[in-house]
């Protein structure tokens, strides 16, 4: 009986912290992939069905506030971490966040060249492509080409800046407010802000689409 128990310990109830269980899930995936039972791409594919569920609602709310409240926007651009706390976004665990403003003459795009550092509490789960070597390398070498692949065509008269997020300092983009939105409420504006526009690979939606 007890021998049986030693050979097959019950997974029962082991109290685990969030960090521990996240490591366990990661370990399970790594072993399954190494044994060839499943490919990471198959898991990526399934999770991409739901990635919007953990989506960028908070980031969208913050961008919409910045579009309607110039003083908040100033605070956001000077010290994003504090401005986000103001909007109820916490859990950054001492990590610094910086928001990059798109203007008529400058466009910003965010990448993590080494891994997948991402401003989680604000943007939710990163899209799978954010982790792909193709994005991580090409965003730096050929930003215009990558933007075009996302359907974003940036004129030669606009400067492009690529920012490398790290564990210590994470970036996200404040897109330009779309035209035709005069008199929109914050809530209506937030509905136009997409995750991709906060990473810098797309424009926000317009009232027509």
């Amino acid at each position: 009986m007890s021998l049986e128990h030693d050979i097959h310990p019950s997974p029962g109830i082991v109290p685990r912290s969030d960090e521990e269980i996240a490591a366990r899930v990661k370990a399970m995936e790594a072993i399954l992939v190494e044994k060839g039972l499943i490919g990471s791409d198959a898991i990526d594919y399934m999770s991409s069905v739901y990635e919007h569920e953990v989506g960028p609602q908070l980031g969208a709310k913050i961008a919409a506030r910045a579009w309607t409240d110039p003083e908040f926007k100033q605070r956001l651009l000077v010290d994003a971490t504090s401005a986000c706390v103001e909007m109820g976004v916490g859990g950054m665990q001492g990590e610094e966040m910086r928001v990059l403003e798109n203007t008529d003459s400058v466009r910003n795009m965010v990448v993590c060249t080494l891994c997948s550092c991402y401003p989680w509490p604000v943007l939710g789960l990163p899209p799978n492509w954010y982790k792909y070597p193709a994005y991580r390398a090409r965003a730096v070498r050929d930003p215009r080409g990558v933007m075009a692949e996302f359907g974003l065509h940036v004129g030669d008269d606009i400067e492009i800046r690529i920012w490398d997020s790290s564990a210590e300092l994470r970036y996200w983009v404040l897109p330009q407010r779309p035209g035709g939105t005069d008199g929109f409420t914050e809530e209506q504006l937030a509905a136009l802000v997409t995750r991709d526009s906060l990473i810098g690979v797309a424009d926000p939606l317009t009232p027509e689409n």
Binding site: D18, K26, L32, S47, Y50, E51, L125
Partner: peptide, 8 residues
């Protein structure tokens, strides 16, 4: 990790 365990 929830989405990952589910997808796996």
């Amino acid at each position: 990790w929830e989405i990952r365990a589910f997808s796996m």
